[in-house]
Write a protein that binds this DNA or RNA. Structure first.
Lengths: 146, 146
DNA sequence: CTGATATAGTCAGTCGGGCTGACCAATACG
DNA sequence: CGTATTGGTCAGCCCGACTGACTATATCAG
């Protein structure tokens, strides 16, 4: 009776979202963005961030983060500028091309939410969101930012 | 207001489950099981399955599946026996050592469910499960088995 | 001030786990 | 039968993680 484990169901849902967003981005002609690049780029803004900090947030090594940023730079999704407050560091800043993709991705995410709400009904959708947020308190104690 | 996207929240939850189960398995001394091997092994039973079929279910190529089965066999988690109904094929069958790990993993999953239920309360937990199952209808139309 | 330590980042090398393409062996079928 | 299909392997590639060793700058204690 138990049915599939909620962890598996969440995995399926998460995979669906990633696939659909990635398809939308690809369909819009951004064919040089790998999933790993996209995941890193999602955390960038005009503000700028250091490679080390990015690595911590994404929970990868700074070497991996550095490699991803390099690719992103080559494809003109980001730029690297010197950090005025520390000569050792450089800030990774989102570039216009990167912003476009971020906007696109967010639009697709909103579309997914609408689809889900339509399928579940507003009430169950709210309950889902509520439970997921509450669960995060114990599954992600170190609070990664959205 | 919008809050984090449900897809991201599901990703966090799924990652938590995978990590915790994998930790439990490791702590029990099964240190030669990689995540990919474990994912493949989860789909095996005494019944036996062909590599090609396993590949389809896991959505990887038969070459990848074949490599994983080879590793699993080397570590004595599975055995390969000839398929009596087709001389080309061989059946991948779970071995005793593999069964042990499966039992261990299921036990940990149940523990996670208890923890989650305690944190959310029975009602919200049920609502979560309900919504996730319903959502699967549109996020996994080709119905992968648990 | 200076020397020790910490921090930002890179270089080099490894590994796991996906992928494609080419291929072999057995089976099924017109 | 001969041809197409199917189960599976072999070979080679690539991406994205990892560790370890290193440079350059910053910071802090004495």
């Amino acid at each position: 009776m138990a049915g599939p484990h909620p962890g598996l169901l969440m995995f399926i849902g998460a995979r669906y979202v990633e696939q659909r967003v990635s398809d939308a981005v690809l369909a819009a002609g951004y064919d040089d963005l790998t999933p790993a690049m996209a995941r890193a780029a999602a955390r960038l803004s005009e503000e700028g961030i250091r490679v080390t900090e990015l690595a911590e947030q994404a929970r990868i090594t700074k070497q991996s983060a550095s490699a991803l940023v390099e690719q992103l730079e080559r494809c003109r999704y980001v730029e690297r500028v010197p950090d005025p407050s520390d000569a050792r560091a450089r800030l990774v800043v989102i570039a216009p091309r990167g912003r476009e993709v971020q906007r696109l991705a967010r639009r697709e995410e909103r579309a997914i939410e609408r689809d889900w709400a339509r399928h579940l009904g507003a009430e169950r959708m709210a309950a889902l969101q509520d439970a997921l947020v509450a669960l995060r308190e114990i599954t992600d104690p170190y609070a990664e930012r959205a």
